[in-house]
Computed example of a mutant assay.
Amino acid sequence: MSPHKLLAITNDIGGFSPALATWYGDPYGAGSGGACGWSNDVQSPPFSAMIAAGNANIYLQGKGCGNCYQILCTRPPYCSMNPVTVTITDECPGACNNVPFAFDLSGTAFGAMSSPGQADNLRNLGRVDVQYRRVPCNYGITKIAFKTDPMANPYWFALTVQFCDGNGGLSSVEVAANGSQQFRLMKNIWGAVWAVDVDPSFRGPYSFRLIALNNEQVIAINALPFGFVPGKSYYSLVNFRS
């Protein structure tokens, strides 16, 4: 069977749609969380380097951060025909937007699409036509984490939200100070970074109400302590349904 016939068949199965896949960074590297604000966290579990940068139609001006996709490579003999799951943690600008949908995978994630012994040969292609579909995120036992911005201070409260199961992306983040039932709406200033102006009377521990893009919501009570360390991650006890 020719690659063209095989591609035509996979266009019609399992809700997959055509896209372009490339890779960046080190061949065995983790990529980046740069445009979503997750920096080098992509190297560690539960991301474990299985990430991708999306073009404009995937990154969605930051609203795509945290969304999960299955990527299926169908090119013999290089590809295993088994889909891999990646999380969007970065943006791929420029040439990635020459096609409607493009994923720039970490070297590790790109190689994971390969047949045994074909990882380097697949990476040597540089780019390959793939199939993709949106899937629920599932980070196992990992709960939602809040990573405080390194520049957070008593007058500017900012953080990123990580490891959301289910829909992955967030439409709204609200924060409440110690003992308060009044949640303040935070603003998505870029990527997965949310911020709100406060004053020193706005003291922790802090609780959060998160609303996913599908309108599911969770409340993380006292997820961030008073006297938090800027730049540190704090894990809650909750997550969305996966």
Rank of each mutant, 00 (worst) to 15 (best):
P3S: 05
L6T: 13
I9K: 04
N11V: 03
N11W: 01
S17V: 01
A21P: 04
Y24P: 00
G25D: 04
G29H: 11
A30H: 00
G33V: 06
W38D: 07
S39T: 10
D41N: 08
Q43A: 13
S44F: 12
P45N: 04
A49R: 12
A49W: 05
M50H: 09
I51E: 06
N55W: 10
A56M: 06
A56E: 08
Y59H: 06
G62M: 07
G64Y: 07
N67F: 08
Y69S: 05
L72G: 08
C73F: 11
R75P: 03
P77C: 01
C79P: 00
P83M: 04
P93Y: 00
P93S: 01
N98I: 02
F101L: 13
F103V: 01
A109Y: 00
A109P: 01
G111L: 02
S114R: 11
G117I: 08
A119E: 15
R123F: 13
R123K: 14
N124Q: 15
L125Q: 11
G126D: 03
R127D: 15
D129F: 02
V130R: 06
R134K: 13
N138R: 05
Y139K: 05
I144C: 03
A145Y: 13
T148A: 12
D149E: 00
P150D: 13
M151S: 10
A152P: 09
W156D: 14
W156R: 14
T160S: 15
F163S: 08
F163Q: 14
D165F: 02
G168N: 09
L170G: 11
S172V: 11
E174I: 09
S180K: 00
Q182I: 08
Q182G: 06
L185P: 06
M186F: 09
I189T: 10
G191I: 07
V193W: 06
A195W: 11
V196Q: 03
D197K: 09
V198A: 02
V198Y: 05
Y206G: 01
Y206Q: 04
L213G: 08
E216K: 12
I219L: 05
N222K: 12
N222H: 04
N222L: 03
G227C: 15
G227D: 15
G227N: 14
V229Y: 13
P230A: 04
